[in-house]
Design a protein around this nucleic acid. Sequence first.
DNA 1: CGCTAATGATTAGTGCACTAACTATCGATG
DNA 2: CATCGATAGTTAGTGCACTAATCATTAGCG
Lengths: 157, 157
Amino acid sequence: MTDVTDETQNDLLLEHQLCFALTVASRSVVGAYKPVLDRLGLTHPQYLVMLCLWESSPRSVRDISDALAQEPATISPLLRRLEAAGFITRQRVPGDERTLAVGLTPQGAALRQQATAVPGTMMDRLGLTREQVSQLHASMMDLIAATKTGSDAPSRR
Amino acid sequence: MTDVTDETQNDLLLEHQLCFALTVASRSVVGAYKPVLDRLGLTHPQYLVMLCLWESSPRSVRDISDALAQEPATISPLLRRLEAAGFITRQRVPGDERTLAVGLTPQGAALRQQATAVPGTMMDRLGLTREQVSQLHASMMDLIAATKTGSDAPSRR
DNA sequence: CGCTAATGATTAGTGCACTAACTATCGATG
DNA sequence: CATCGATAGTTAGTGCACTAATCATTAGCG
């Protein structure tokens, strides 16, 4: 009976899994946004798309999906819902009939004003300082980087 | 023009959002598990349920859903798929016809042996030390705790 | 005892997220 | 300039995750 055995047993405890803590934290934090984003009429993924467009627009689906680290197939129906909600426009680019120009409607642009309060509100609700947020942020970025250096390269398409 | 304005503008940058980094990290880490869990025939949520049952079984749906911090409505179809895969059993408790006794099949119990390698494999793949993992884990637990102390109590049902 | 409230699980409906397959357009090369 | 491969986006199918509604059973209380 070695220590290794004990460690291995221990390693399978749910409470010790980083991946578990991470998924719970992600769902919990996103859940904490819900009441705040409800007032804007946005889900959390939709909020991220709007942040994306407030930074620069119009932009293509591929561009947005790269920025959000998600598949175009995920973004596509999401954009359709945002269009139905009246926040964005979807038009083909004149020069290139393949790509879509995703832009903001006046309501979509106006929503930004209300959204400026969100980050501060959330920091308050979570009881985090700006310092703590940026430290956690840095940890997450490191973790993301770690998943990209894995043995089986994601093979940049 | 005050600093506050600049900060507020800055706060809406996608790159600065903790919630964004968190969701990407969660998806990335879970994604990194996929090739490893594929060999066991499990998805990541299913893997968490199995961890849960390897610790103690049989247990009820409510018990599992509490342990995983998820709704029973999420767990219910997940268990049905695990049953179809031959890893678990679902039987009514004799004394209480409402509650379900979720237990392990021989295959489900045997799978634990292969699963013991998973945490170590993942630590390697992510290039993290045991130290780093436990530090990140602690950060996530703090963050989860922060979401529970919010102004609007989740109201313990 | 009999009724009512609470509990345990499931179902329906919405929205995300992924892979794989498909359509349409563009560009590059012979 | 015609074909062929690459690029942009969508659709189909699976599985999670949530809320709200439903059904069955149990427990509690007058």
